[in-house]
Design a binder for these strands. Structure first.
Length: 92
DNA sequence: GCCATGGCTAGTA
DNA sequence: GCCATGGCTAGTA
């Protein structure tokens, strides 16, 4: 919920924040079960290389949501990923 | 491309 | 044993 509209973060960054830097994959598994999608913006979590990552309702849906928040895609990659990426400090 | 990692589930006993 | 990842390495151009 600390990720604002128009910004994204990564599975790995969330793992680091919770003090378990190797748990990035587990973070994805948990987000997959998000009981309150959109409200809890799991669609704002992408891969460390700037590609879209997964989504329980399909990647295309995830892309739509992010585009509606102002992000752009080139294929499966977020354009200007480093500009839109929230750094770890922003999550604390 | 490989593999460590962590949370979970299906399937067996 | 699967997977909504990530980091590192070998091998190619």
């Amino acid at each position: 919920m600390k990720i604002p509209r128009g910004k994204v973060t990564t599975y790995g960054d969330i793992a680091k924040i919770i003090g378990q830097p190797k748990a990035s994959r587990a973070v994805g598994r948990i987000l997959n079960k998000n009981p309150n999608p959109v409200k809890v913006p799991c669609h704002r979590v992408v891969m460390s290389n700037g590609t879209i990552g997964g989504y329980a309702f399909g990647k295309s849906r995830k892309k739509e949501l992010l585009e509606s928040e102002g992000l752009c895609f080139a294929g499966d990659s977020v354009v200007e990923f480093n500009r839109s990426r929230l750094d770890a400090a922003g999550l604390v």
